[in-house]
């Protein structure tokens, strides 16, 4: 058994420090995978969070993944890790865009990427915090669907809800967040 399976076993037995270590493990693995993929990516190919998350599961768990009937812990961790990765990246880029010394334009030159997308991502994240306060379950649906790229069915399974409830929550959350970000 590798570290990941040991840890996940402990998580499933309810070991809290293990949950944290496990989250950190997933975070590192996802970041490593994303970096690696981005470096190798063929032109035109896009890299989807859902693919990353599933690949991380396979890599971390290997054959022993099958032992774990309940993968919920993993996907919660993965959604959260993915969110952190994306937000950190967007924040870093935005900081570089705004701050810094303009004399050194060339450094900015290569760091500047799709500012609108970063802004939207950060706006979604901020709004999502508010949604978490008012509608925690709906917000969890958003995290799993949006950040981990899970399907309605997978999300339903993880949250132990019906697919139609997940769809309702998803519709509601999108309207809620859209309104929060863009206004009426």
């Amino acid at each position: 058994m590798n570290d990941a399976t040991l840890l996940l076993g402990a998580v499933e037995r309810g070991d809290s420090p293990a949950a944290e270590s496990f989250l950190s493990l997933v975070y590192e693995e996802l970041r490593r995978l994303a970096t690696h993929k981005l470096a190798q990516e063929a032109p035109g190919q896009t890299l989807q969070p859902t693919a990353l998350v599933h690949e991380a599961w396979l890599r971390l768990m290997g054959n022993e993944g099958r032992r774990f009937a309940n993968r919920a812990h993993f996907f919660h961790a993965a959604a959260e890790a993915m969110r952190r990765i994306l937000i950190d990246r967007a924040r870093r880029r935005r900081a570089r865009r705004h701050g810094g010394d303009m004399e050194r334009v060339d450094l900015d030159e290569c760091n500047l990427v799709a500012p609108d997308d970063d802004d939207q991502l950060l706006a979604v994240n901020d709004a999502l915090e508010k949604l978490t306060r008012d509608h925690p379950l709906q917000a969890q649906v958003v995290k799993l669907r949006y950040f981990a790229g899970l399907t309605n069915e997978e999300t339903a399974q993880l949250l132990d809800l019906s697919v139609s409830t997940v769809k309702n929550h998803w519709t509601f959350s999108r309207a809620w967040l859209f309104h929060e970000i863009r206004g009426a």
Binding site: L38, Y146, F178
Partner: peptide, 10 residues
């Protein structure tokens, strides 16, 4: 809106 997950490049 939000239908597509953010690409890891953001």
């Amino acid at each position: 809106f939000l239908e597509e997950s953010p690409h890891p490049r953001g």
